[in-house]
């Protein structure tokens, strides 16, 4: 167990536990407004203080983890399910299929997740669904590239030759021989993409184009804190720390997995 893997798992685990916990227990109602206790510093009643509307910040941080994880899981899921088969197909078929898929990936790469999400928000309005679709779609090329690169390597191996000699069907070869060999690379890519998805969702919510209120999300909490950056920075610092913890967790996890699965790739990386 290397340090990155350990630290990454711990931070990601923390975010997951917090999100799960929020379904079972929260100290307060995350959306209940209580002007009598607005802008309070941490106390025995409000562990992390309250915001400008008197909502409990600890509760909102807990509940905010849900959106972060939901958007991450769904968008990474979209990217894996579309990108991986395309990449494997390109790597096995070669020729025109490969050329078209990879050029398509190049073109999509010119559209970062946030830009695609802003376009979707312009058309369909701000929503969690359009955010997930945009972030997921923007992450497809990454998976397609990784899957293709891995497939090209695997296809040169002798067991593939044996499988082909035994006239196994391509789909079976892909499933039985190629995919298992890509698993490590794909898991690393998932972790890295997850961190990017968390960032994109936070930025989008900060711009008011993510999950609409009253559902608390960390990015939106940052946006709501705008008028209090000078007088009550706690409102910005708390969701900020939460975002940083989540991003760092998935990044470290990705690095740790890379060191573990692919010691050669990990050389020289922190």
């Amino acid at each position: 167990m290397n340090f990155n893997l350990l630290a990454g798992s711990a931070l990601v685990g923390l975010v997951v536990i917090v999100a799960v916990l929020s379904f079972v227990w929260t100290p307060y109602d995350p959306v209940r407004i209580n002007p009598q206790v607005k802008l309070q510093l941490p106390s025995a009643q409000h562990w992390l203080g309250t915001d400008n509307l008197g909502r409990d910040l600890f509760t909102r941080i807990l509940v905010g983890a849900r959106i972060t994880l939901l958007v991450g899981v769904v968008s990474v899921g979209i990217a894996v399910l579309i990108g991986t088969p395309l990449g494997i197909w390109a790597g096995m078929k070669r020729g025109a299929v490969e050329e078209i898929t990879m050029r398509g990936a190049d073109i999509l790469l010119a559209f970062p997740a946030l830009l695609l999400a802003i376009m979707f928000a312009a058309i369909y309005g701000a929503s969690t669904v359009s955010a997930m679709a945009a972030i997921g779609l923007a992450s497809v090329p990454g998976f397609a590239r990784v899957a293709r690169a891995g497939t090209l390597q695997v296809m040169n191996s002798e067991y593939i030759l044996a499988a082909r000699a035994a006239s196994q069907r391509p789909l079976r070869i892909a499933r039985r021989h190629v995919l298992p060999n890509l698993a490590g690379m794909l898991i690393i890519q998932c972790s890295v993409t997850f961190a990017l998805a968390v960032l994109a969702e936070a930025a989008l919510s900060f711009l008011g184009l993510g999950t609409p209120p009253p559902v608390p999300s960390w990015g939106r909490m940052l946006q709501e804190s705008q008028q209090y950056w000078g007088t009550f920075p706690l409102m910005a610092i708390l969701p900020g720390v939460a975002i940083a913890v989540a991003v760092m967790g998935f990044n470290l996890l990705g690095d740790g997995l890379r060191d573990r699965f692919d010691p050669k790739l990990g050389r020289g990386k922190a």
Binding site: A202, A203, F206, P233, A236, I243, A244, M248, N251, L252
Partner: peptide, 27 residues
């Protein structure tokens, strides 16, 4: 230095911006 860069990557630009505004300008 490597550890600092790991921390730096986790802090999105707009968050750093908010912290800078809060501290350097408003405080």
């Amino acid at each position: 230095i490597s550890a600092l860069s790991q921390l730096g990557i986790a802090i999105p630009g707009f968050l750093l911006g908010i912290l800078l505004v809060s501290l350097v300008s408003l405080r």
